[in-house]
Structure formats: C-alpha cells, structure tokens
Write a protein that binds this DNA or RNA. Structure first.
Lengths: 345, 345
DNA sequence: TTGAGTTGCGGAAAAGTTCCGGAGTTTTTC
DNA sequence: GAAAAACTCCGGAACTTTTCCGCAACTCAA
C-alpha cells in the first residue's frame, strides 16, 4: 500500500498533498489540540496511506503515560496486572492510567474522547474485545496497542500477551488424575474468552490422554466470578454421580466451589479435591490453601508495559504473540479420593 | 443520536433551521427573558436534537488526569479504592493515573519528576505519609491534594477522607462481647497509621465499657497483611490462656488467623471466633464466610475523586475531614465460645 | 551546514455575545 | 376612540472570544 516511491515520506510531502503547512502536519502527529477536526482527519488519512514513520527513534516526545484498559475493575486479578504495568512504567518514568470500560460502547467512546484531549504513549487492553472501530481509531492516532489475554482470535497485527492456558489446564487435570481421581468436574470461564476455551481444551486433552471419557455433565459454564463457582460447585455435587475432584478455571470460582462443598457439610480435600487457576495471593491463605495453576500475572503486566513502550519508541517486536509459562502449585486442597465410596480400590 | 455529520453543530445552523437569527439562539442558550415561549421551545428542541455543546469550556484548562498514589499496590483493598476513583473520573472525563511509591523517598521523587513533565488536575494519596517536602512541592505546583486514610494527624489544610474506624473497632468488639466472649485477641495494624490506632482504641473502649480488663498480651502488632495475621493468630493461640475470639483489624490478617487456627487443628467458629475489618469481596466467600466490619471503600474512592475535582475547579470544600460510616456485617465466623473451655463438651 | 521536525507568535476567520433599534402588540391617557 | 406610551420579541451590527493555521525562528541529529 504505502507506495513510498523510493524516498522516505516526509511531513513536507504530506503537507503539500494535504494542502496545509508543515507545522500543521507536525501538530497532527503530536496530537495537539489546535487542529480542525476535518483537517486532522485529512492529514491522518494521508499519513496512514503513505505509511509515514517518524524519522528518528530518539527524538520521540513521550506523553509520559501508558493507558491500561480493563473491562471491569472488580477482581484481585486486576491488581496483579496493574502492579506489573505500574512497576515497569514507574521505572521508565511513565504514569499508568487505569480505566474500566464496563463492556459498554458508550464508556469506550468516552474514554477515547478523554484520550484525545491528552496524549498517551500506548494502550494495553486486558481481556478486552478491542472492537474494530476502536482499533481503527487508535490506529489513526498512531497509538501502539498491546492486548493481554485477548478475547477472540489473535486478531490482526496487534501483539498479544497471555499465559499457557492450555498447558495449565492440562497440568491441573493431570495432577488430579495422578492422585487417583477419575471423575473430575470442570467449572469453565466465559466462552467468549480465548483463555477460557484453552483451559477447557487442556482439561479435555488431559482426560483423553488418560483414557477417561469426557462427560459434558461435568462441565459447568461459569464466568470467573465467585458466585458462578458456588453455583457450579453446587450443581456438580448435585449430580447422581458427583465428581471427586473439581477443577475451577479461576481461583475466585474455586473459592465459590469451597463454599458449595462446605454448605454440603463436606470437606476439602477429604471429600472433594479442588484445583483453581491464577494463584492469586489469597490462594495461599485460603482454608485450606488452594492447589492451583499459577499465572505470572505481574510478569504479564510487566511484559505488556515493556512491549508497548518499545512500540512507542518505534522499535520492533520479537514476536506478535507471547505466552508465559503457567506453573502447577500443589497445596492442601487436593488429595487422593476416598477409596471406599461407591465401590472400592 | 444527534447524528452530527462530522462537523460540529453551531448556533448558526440551529438558527437557520429554526428560522430565527443567531442572536436569538444565543439568548435562548443564556436563559435571557426576551424570547417568545414558543420560539424558545422550538430552539431548545433543536438544540437538544442536535446535541449542541458549548464551544468554550469556560473553566480553567484541565489536564484531564487525576493521580492516585498508593504506598503499595499489593492488596485487593487497593482495587476497591481504584474502582471508586475511576468511576467518578470516568464520568467527569478525566483519567486515573495509578502509582505506587513503595514507601521509598526515591520512588516518590521519581513520581514527582514524572508529574512535572505532564499535568494533573489533582492528587489523591492513600494511607500515605505525604511527607512535608512532597506536600510543599505539590503546593508550589498549585496541585490540589486529598488524602484517604491519612497516616498521621489530620495535618495541615489538606482534606482527608476516612471511615469511622474507632466506631468500627468498637462495634466488632461489642459483637464478640455480646455473644459471650470475654477473652478477645486483637491483631493490630501498623501503628503509624491513624486508622490502625483508631481501631485499637475502639477495641479497648469496647472492653472497658463491658468491664473487661485490657490485657496487652492479647494485642499482637501486625501490618495488615496475611502473614502477620498468621503470625498473630499463632502467637495468640500459643498463650497459656488463649483467646476464644480474635479481632483482626484487616480482612487479610483475619484470613491469616484462619490459617493459624486451621494449623492447630481447631475450627472457626466452633473453637475460635474471628472478626475482620474491611469487608473485601472475598470475605463473603471465605470458609467460613467472615464476620467483619464493612468499610465503604468504593464510596471513599468516589468521594476522594469528587473532592479533588471540586478543588481543581477552584470550588470550596464542605468539610476538611470526612468520615464515612462503617457497618458491622455478621456472617459465620463468629459464635458463642465453648462453655467448658479446655475440657468438657 | 543542511534537512527534518517543533514551537512561539500573530493574524484571519469563525463562533458566540451584547447593544440597540424597529416592528408589532398591548396598555394607558386624555 | 385615538394617540401616546410601554412592552414584547427579534434581527442587524459591532464587539469579544476562540479556533485554526502559516510564518519564521528554533532544536536536533547527520
């Protein structure tokens, strides 16, 4: 596309073609406010069409801010990501702007509106859909974007950062199988998230590799929050042939499962084993301490921040898709199933 | 839905469409009296339909950012505050910049350095000491400051926002006394924080009002984090005459106490009752669900944001010191003490 | 030095406000 | 009952404020 005819594109050429002066193009590039909306659009269109790139890597004016956008800000999960981003940002002398767009397009538009009035060095979306129009707008503003735990398919040319969710799901399932469980319940996350589906597939793969048939009745659709874990645990224990172990695909749901088990008058791990996913700080302090799959959330935040800052400097990216390793953390919420129960060993 | 087709709506367009002159529209906008009622109505209808917005912000130039500074970003506690601030900020079209200064003066200096390169409409400190030099610097920059849960004395002329910590500590103690406990342990927060001291004083006041002598051996110095709760619970249970109920002045420490009790092979609330402070979302889902003192954290964040934005607009403040009410939330972690104590039952 | 890009300054034009007067209507006066 | 006075409502024009962009001077790297 760019069709840059041998020579590098300069703002002088853009200015001539757009019928404006050089300073005006410069102002558009730097996100100044004193440019008429349609002039800005015309110039941005030409910049994009010619694939303009900043001349030097050094003279980039930084806004001193990185945007971190969540769908919802209602989980301890979020703090871990914030910590990672803030840590790197702090070291690099950039502030971290945290927003929640609550899945509403109006909120997203309002956020974008605010973004226009100031500047940003880059945007990190977390488990967000990053709607095409929004992405197009950001592209027009020439703002680098990174997505953590992308919702849909890896998408276009946006770098994404995640964890090895499939491997984590597999490891958790293998752990339960290894200590003797055969009937393993699964509380899934929202199906529209890639990480949820990967964890579910890891669970399925683990069962199949062990020759245990996958029973759809043992898979409960949750949403990562406490309440759905409670509902899922209750539903699974209500089955005629209830599971001896339950793998919840988030720690919060695992705590909900704890509560469901406790309400039944049963105990963890004596009667039912539970495995979570995330390894939030509170997993270590739950009663009993939760066996879970550790996601390096802080490290994911750090990496996202470093990536977006590199992009902001015009530097390249090693890989458009990075998955950090998960790690099985065995604590006290898993044990061998009761041998006696229906049959025996 | 004004469907503003790219261009901005001007009063000229409105005037043309309404069949009146520009000055007439201007008069409607400014609430002048010399406009015929039906003319006024017609114009107002069109203004509404096109979503007309005043061109001039009229107010001072805003940076569109509010800074939210924590000491450490390592507790679910922080998310609640962030949610509140972000919520109000989002509504007002300002971004929320989250920072952690890790109690280090160097980090604070670095943060201030970053602040100089950009602009801010105001700063909210959370449980921070707000050292005099830092405060002086901010004052020099003419940046409004609000402190949530101030560390030291209410300080100079800085508005502060907190909760009724003393009343909360009293309520928790009274609850334990009411169900029959006489020997009540207390796991304190860091003594340099005002809220910690207030909770401790509430505890003492509750005991004294009930005629129960305060035993310093029952007061363990914690730091609000899990680990110190575990240490405190362990230490209290190791006493020759251990408490039958433990009041931890944060939910996280209460979870640490849970773990200490569990390690002893004892049970909550059968053997030992536990009360927390904060009412984090996970308190509801702990095993067993935690009896605690609810702090309106989100609301505190909201209020802080509203206050700092009002200050930024040059408006006045109703009160320099606001305390929001705490609320006793009774769940399943408290019960009457075993009557026979060491033996019997 | 040279070329690319940025910034302070100022001016033209647009947007919005205020002053003023005039047409039409209502009220008062004689 | 007619003229005068007063009032209502609105447009023209002058004025003020804000936006937008070019000029020229400047910075920065090669």
């Amino acid at each position: 596309m760019g069709a840059d005819d041998g020579r590098r594109v300069t703002i002088t050429a853009i200015a001539r073609e757009a019928g404006v002066s050089v300073p005006t193009v410069s102002r558009v590039l730097n996100g100044r406010s004193d440019v008429a909306p349609d002039t800005r659009e015309r110039v941005e269109e030409l910049l994009r069409h010619h694939g303009y790139r900043r001349r030097t890597s050094r003279s980039v004016r930084r806004a001193g801010l990185v945007d971190l956008v969540f769908n919802d800000l209602d989980s301890p999960w979020a703090v871990e990501i914030i910590r990672g981003v803030e840590d790197v940002g702090h070291g690099a002398g950039v502030g971290t702007v945290v927003s929640a767009i609550h899945r509403q397009p109006t909120a997203a538009r309002q956020w974008l509106q605010n973004l226009r009035t100031r500047a940003t060095d880059g945007v990190i979306f977390v488990t967000s859909h990053l709607s095409p129009p929004l992405h197009a707008q950001l592209r027009r503003l020439n703002v680098p974007v990174v997505v953590v735990d992308p919702a849909g398919v890896p998408a276009m040319d946006v770098p994404t950062i995640g964890a090895t969710n499939w491997a984590g799901g597999l490891a958790a399932t293998e752990h339960l199988l290894a200590i003797g469980h055969r009937r393993i319940g699964f509380v899934a996350g929202p199906t529209h998230l890639l990480c949820s589906r990967a964890r579910l597939d890891g669970y399925r793969a683990g069962l199949e590799a062990a020759g245990v048939p996958v029973d759809d009745a043992l898979i409960y659709p949750g949403d990562f929050y406490h309440a759905s874990g409670f509902a899922g645990g209750t539903a699974l224990l209500d089955l005629a042939d209830p599971p001896t172990g339950i793998f919840a695909s988030s720690d919060q749901m695992a705590f909900g499962v704890y509560e469901a088990i406790r309400r039944r008058g049963l105990r963890v791990p004596d009667d039912v084993s539970v495995v979570g996913f995330d390894d939030l700080p509170e997993a270590r302090w739950a009663s009993p301490p939760l066996t879970t799959v550790r996601q390096p959330l802080v490290e994911m935040g750090r990496l996202a921040a470093r990536t977006v800052l590199r992009l902001a400097q015009g530097e390249g990216i090693d890989s458009p898709r990075v998955e950090l390793a998960t790690e099985m953390v065995v604590r006290d919420s898993t044990a061998a199933p009761l041998t006696g129960s229906p049959a025996s060993a």
